[in-house]
């Protein structure tokens, strides 16, 4: 007691001590000096008033009153600094946000451009595909023309006439070989297409003989195609004998038309409709 009394002034009221300590803390905060200098000075003035009253040994109620005001004003200085600091940060951050937003928009624009480019590229690609398909169709028509095939309801039909075979035999003559070579080239070019080879005869001779001859001639054409590298799985054969005549068997020219081999070329799916009637 004695020591404290000698070493320093009399003890302050607890409220004044509290105000002193609050002011001390706040005034040491550098951001308060920067962002709330006026509020800090107001707190200091109030604290000074309290101190003066205390030194003058004034009424304690009055000392504490100004000490309380000083304490609250110190707190106001602190909050004012926080407010002003936050507003400065907002002012700084807002342009940054705008900059990022612009970056994002630019990015979106680039993406949109890329998508448009891609769509154009796809459209171009489709056009080229269509053009190729058209050219292929044209080529097919041309090749069919070269084959001298007929467009029928069963598809393309190539007829190998009697003159292309030896008399009463299944072997192909040179002309027949040429026709088969042409057909093999066609089948090489259009690997999705298959063929059905059907043999026919006139009504001269026994039915069994004719049936046999028509099948052998069909098989002979098949063998010629296989020899030229066409897979046997793509070639069907059948002998119909005297059935399905295309002309009368009463005349020599009619019988000659009936002696024939027909090659039916499938559509793109490889299937050939069955012969009707």
């Amino acid at each position: 007691m004695l020591l404290t009394a000698c070493s320093g002034p009399l003890a302050m009221t607890p409220m004044l001590e509290e105000a002193e300590s609050e002011f001390e803390t706040v005034s040491q905060d550098s951001s308060v000096l920067v962002y709330a200098p006026v509020a800090l000075v107001e707190a200091e003035e109030e604290l000074e008033r309290s101190r003066t009253l205390w030194e003058a040994k004034a009424d304690r109620t009055l000392i504490d009153h100004h000490a309380y005001l000083a304490k609250q004003k110190a707190a106001i200085a602190r909050e004012t600094a926080n407010l002003n600091k936050a507003q400065v940060e907002i002012e700084r951050a807002e342009p940054e946000r705008q900059r990022v937003l612009i970056d994002i928009r630019r990015d979106q624009a680039q993406r949109a451009e890329q998508r448009a480019e891609q769509a154009l590229e796809e459209a171009r690609h489709e056009r080229e595909e269509a053009e190729r398909a058209r050219q292929r169709a044209e080529e097919l028509a041309e090749r069919v023309n070269e084959l001298e095939a007929q467009q029928t309801e069963r598809g393309l039909v190539l007829t190998l006439g009697d003159v292309l075979f030896d008399f009463d035999r299944a072997e192909l003559q040179a002309g027949g070989q040429r026709a088969v070579a042409e057909l093999a080239r066609f089948l090489e070019e259009y690997p999705e297409r298959n063929v059905m080879i059907e043999g026919f005869t006139d009504s001269v001779g026994s039915e069994e003989y004719n049936q046999n001859l028509s099948l052998r001639r069909a098989n002979s054409v098949q063998q010629a195609l296989i020899n030229r590298g066409i897979s046997s799985s793509r070639i069907g054969t059948v002998g119909y004998g005297v059935r399905y005549p295309v002309a009368t068997n009463q005349t020599e020219s009619g019988r000659q038309q009936n002696r024939r081999v027909e090659v039916i070329i499938s559509d793109q799916s490889g299937s050939i409709p069955e012969r009707r009637n």
Partner: peptide, 19 residues
């Protein structure tokens, strides 16, 4: 002075939230 402190504290709290 209490009410003034309440005001400034409110404004400061809102601004800090905005930040």
């Amino acid at each position: 002075v209490d009410a003034e402190l309440a005001q400034i504290k409110t404004l400061s709290g809102k601004a800090q939230l905005a930040v």
